[in-house]
Simulated assay, not measured.
Amino acid sequence: MFVQRGKRLLVMAAVAVALPFSLPAVATAATGPIELGIVPGTNDTSVTAIGDRGQLIGQSCANSPHSHSCVAVKWDKAGRVTRLEPLPGGFAEAKAVNATGMIVGTSNLRAVRWALDGSITQLSSPPGGSTSEATGISSTGVVVGSGKAGDDRQRGLRWDSSGNVTVLAAPPLEGAYYASAITRDGRFIAGRLYGTDGSTRVLRWDATGAVTMLGPAAVQSWFRDLNASGELVGDTVINDRHTAVKWTADGTMIQLGGPDSYGTSVLALNGSGVSVGRGYVATPAGSLDVAVRWAADGTMTRLSDLNGQAEDIDGQGRIVGRAGNAALWDANGVKTDLGTLPGGGFSRAQLIGLDGTIAGGAVTAGGDWHAVYWPAR
C-alpha cells in the first residue's frame, strides 16, 4: 500500500535545535514493574509487540553458556503466559499483534498467523516460494511481510484478511525488498530495499499499491516507524554522520536536530508527527546518549541526563524509555521513574500501548532478564 511515485527530490531542511536550560522536573516515582510469566524450562523473556488493548507478545528463552532456544508466547492482562505453538516440528517467532489480538510471525521459515484461540495458520507463499515471514498486521487483519518467489528473489508481500497473497510493487531500483509495518487502517505499508547499488533505502506503499523510494542515493537509510498520515521516521547518513530524519507525506525529508555535533537516531513516531529517540553528546568518557523528543517540525527537546533513550510515544504525547532505569515522560516532558524489580537492577520501558499499558524488561534478583509491564494508568 505505498505510493508508486518513483524517485523524487528529497529536501533536507535544516532544523533548529531547542535545548532547554534545565531538564524537566521529575515526578514522584511510580510503582515498580510487574513481572510477566515465564514458560517452564526457560529463564529469559522479552516483549516484542503490544496490541491496542494491552495484549503482549514476545518470547521466552532458555539460555546457557552453550545453548540458546526460544519459544513464541503471549501474555494476558494478568501477566499469565501462554506458549504459541509452532508449525509441526519447528520453532516460531511472534512479530506483531493487532487490535483484536490476532498475532503474526514466522514458524519454520514460513509466515504464520495465530487466531485468538492460539491456533496457527501458515500463510500462502507466491508461486514457487521457498521462505516467508510476517512482520505487521492491520486492525482488519491485513498482513505484511516478505518472502522468496520461484526465482529466489526477496520481495515484499501483502496478505488480505482471507490469507490471499500479493507481491507488493517493486521499487525503481533493483534489489531485495521487504515490508516491515502497516498502519492500523491498512492504508500505508513501510519497508526497506537493499539496492543492487549497495545502498539501503526506505520504501512506502499507499492504498493503491504504488511504491515510493525514500532516502539519499548511495548511502544507508533505515526505517523505524510509520503513522496513519503516511509519515515515516528513520535514520540515514548525512555528511558521514548517522542522522535521524522524518519523511513527510509528500516525501520531503526533514533532518531531526541533535544535542551537539554527534549523531542522532529516531525510534518511534506518533499520529501528530512527534518523534522520539536518542542523541549523543560529548563527555570526557566519550560520546554518550540522551533521550530526546522532536516536534513535528523537527525541533528537538532533550529529555534526560546522560545514559538515556526514548523508545516509544503514544497519541497523547506520553513517552517511554530509559533514563538510568525505565522512565515515563508526560506530554510536558515531566519524568516519572518506573522503578525496578525487587532485588533486581536495571529496567527499561520499550513500548506504550493505545490504552496506556507500558511494557519492557528488567533484571531480576537472580540476574536474568524478564519481560515486565506497567498497567495502564
Rank of each mutant, 00 (worst) to 15 (best):
residue 156 G to E: 05
residue 136 G to I: 01
residue 136 G to E: 00
residue 145 G to P: 00
residue 143 V to T: 09
residue 148 K to Y: 15
residue 171 P to F: 02
residue 139 S to K: 12
residue 153 R to W: 05
residue 126 P to L: 13
residue 125 S to M: 12
residue 160 D to M: 12
residue 130 S to L: 13
residue 119 S to K: 15
residue 136 G to D: 03
residue 120 I to T: 11
residue 146 S to I: 00
residue 170 A to L: 06
residue 145 G to M: 01
residue 152 D to H: 14
residue 164 N to Y: 10
residue 168 L to Q: 03
residue 126 P to A: 10
residue 181 A to M: 04
residue 146 S to D: 13
residue 123 L to T: 03
residue 150 G to D: 12
residue 136 G to L: 03
residue 139 S to A: 15
residue 126 P to D: 10
residue 143 V to G: 03
residue 145 G to A: 09
residue 129 G to T: 03
residue 142 V to K: 00
residue 152 D to C: 08
residue 137 I to R: 02
residue 167 V to K: 10
residue 144 V to G: 01
residue 175 G to Q: 07
residue 130 S to A: 12
residue 179 A to L: 07
residue 120 I to D: 01
residue 124 S to I: 06
residue 179 A to S: 08
residue 129 G to E: 06
residue 146 S to N: 12
residue 132 S to A: 14
residue 169 A to N: 08
residue 149 A to L: 13
residue 178 Y to R: 04
residue 117 D to H: 07
residue 155 R to T: 01
residue 137 I to E: 00
residue 169 A to W: 03
residue 121 T to D: 00
residue 154 Q to N: 13
residue 128 G to F: 09
residue 160 D to G: 11
residue 125 S to Q: 14
residue 140 T to Y: 03
residue 154 Q to Y: 14
residue 118 G to F: 05
residue 152 D to V: 10
residue 129 G to A: 11
residue 178 Y to P: 03
residue 131 T to Q: 10
residue 180 S to V: 08
residue 147 G to D: 02
residue 159 W to N: 02
residue 128 G to Q: 08
residue 170 A to D: 07
residue 163 G to Q: 03
residue 124 S to D: 15
residue 116 L to H: 07
residue 163 G to M: 10
residue 141 G to E: 02
residue 157 L to T: 08
residue 147 G to K: 04
residue 132 S to E: 02
residue 144 V to L: 07
residue 157 L to Y: 07
residue 116 L to Q: 13
residue 151 D to R: 08
residue 136 G to V: 02
residue 152 D to F: 14
residue 120 I to C: 00
residue 140 T to E: 10
residue 166 T to R: 13
residue 137 I to P: 00
residue 162 S to C: 01
residue 149 A to K: 08
residue 167 V to P: 02
residue 179 A to T: 02
residue 121 T to K: 14
residue 136 G to C: 05
residue 144 V to A: 08
residue 120 I to W: 04
residue 115 A to S: 15
residue 181 A to L: 01
residue 119 S to T: 15
residue 148 K to W: 14
residue 159 W to G: 02
residue 141 G to D: 03
residue 134 A to Q: 05
residue 132 S to L: 04
residue 134 A to P: 05
residue 126 P to I: 09
residue 132 S to C: 07
residue 161 S to E: 13
residue 169 A to S: 13
residue 133 E to H: 01
residue 170 A to Y: 06
residue 165 V to L: 07
residue 115 A to H: 08
residue 138 S to V: 09
residue 156 G to H: 04
residue 129 G to D: 07
residue 142 V to W: 00
residue 152 D to W: 07
residue 178 Y to D: 07
residue 121 T to I: 02
residue 149 A to C: 10
residue 170 A to T: 11
residue 126 P to S: 09
residue 160 D to P: 10
residue 166 T to K: 14
residue 115 A to E: 12
residue 139 S to Q: 10
residue 142 V to R: 00
residue 165 V to S: 05
residue 124 S to V: 10
residue 147 G to Q: 05
residue 116 L to I: 14
residue 127 P to I: 05
residue 155 R to K: 14
residue 155 R to Q: 09
